[in-house]
């Protein structure tokens, strides 16, 4: 990974929230670097503050302590767990709404047309989100993230509520685009198999106050990965073992 440029750095980040019984320490001393083009999966016990970490990276939360440094003008997209579409804007207007903050109108239109074609959303271009099915809304959420030609894509379990077929279809779309455009991905997942199959690096997080338990590097090209591969299987078992121990 070293040969790629660093696009984001978290240095000794701490975050607490106020709660009834005083402060709730969520993140404690998290340091993490993200390099251009790599896929990082964040895995950890549920409620360990993965979303908090992602929100700090996205600039939605400020850390109590520590620094977040990012490459100047870093183009960040975020695929939320539930689609966050503007209900009063059509499919196309939902895309151009964010695109115009980053791209020139001609480039925006080209990227938009291409993505709508590839994802089968083209016939729904002028339709409002209320008229789309749940799966189509999530597809649009993903298309919106890709439509700004991001350099960093944040994903907070975006396939959680989808059926398997749709999940694979959407994953394929993202990784196809990732192969073409080489953006970095920071992905939260509760599924260690998903992490092992897709990430270049897996960051295993501890329970609250959350710290980094282990960093697992997966050096195999994505296409050659199979869960039957003994090396991958061993890594998967290691993560599962840690998560199961946490749950007991």
């Amino acid at each position: 990974m070293g040969k790629n440029a660093e696009i984001l750095e978290l240095r000794r980040v701490y975050k607490s929230f106020r709660s009834k019984n005083g402060g709730l320490k969520v993140l404690a001393d998290i340091s993490l670097s993200v390099y251009a083009g790599e896929v990082i999966a964040l895995v950890g016990p549920s409620g360990c503050g993965k979303t908090t970490l992602l929100n700090i990276v996205a600039g939605l939360l400020d850390p109590d302590q520590g620094d977040v440094n990012q490459k100047q003008g870093l183009r960040t997209a975020y695929i939320f767990q539930e689609p966050r579409l503007l209900p009063w804007k059509t499919v196309e207007a939902n895309l151009s709404f964010v695109q115009h903050n980053f791209l020139l109108p001609s480039e925006a239109a080209e990227v938009r047309d291409n993505l709508l074609q590839r994802t089968g959303l083209e016939p729904y271009r002028n339709v409002y989100p209320a008229q789309l099915s749940g799966g189509m809304k999530q597809r649009l959420e993903i298309v919106r993230a890709l439509s700004i030609r991001p350099q960093l894509l944040l994903m907070d379990e975006p396939f959680k509520s989808l059926d398997l077929a749709l999940k694979y279809q959407l994953q394929e779309l993202i990784f196809e685009r990732h192969a073409e455009e080489k953006f970095a991905i920071l992905l939260i997942t509760h599924d260690p198999e998903e992490a092992v199959m897709q990430a270049d690096r897996i960051i295993v997080l501890t329970d609250k106050p959350t710290n980094i338990y282990r960093e697992i590097i997966i050096d195999l090209p994505r296409r050659e990965r199979s869960i039957k591969n003994p090396e991958l299987y061993q890594k998967l078992e290691e993560i599962l073992g840690f998560l199961l121990k946490k749950q007991q």
Binding site: L60, T76, A77, Y78, R84, L86, K89, F97, V98, I148
Partner: peptide, 26 residues
Amino acid sequence: DVNLVEMAVVYRCSKTKIITNIYLPA
């Protein structure tokens, strides 16, 4: 919906854009 405002912030929409495209239509 605060979630929509958060989305707009991540995608670097200006305050004016958030008011005219999220607050007013809502």
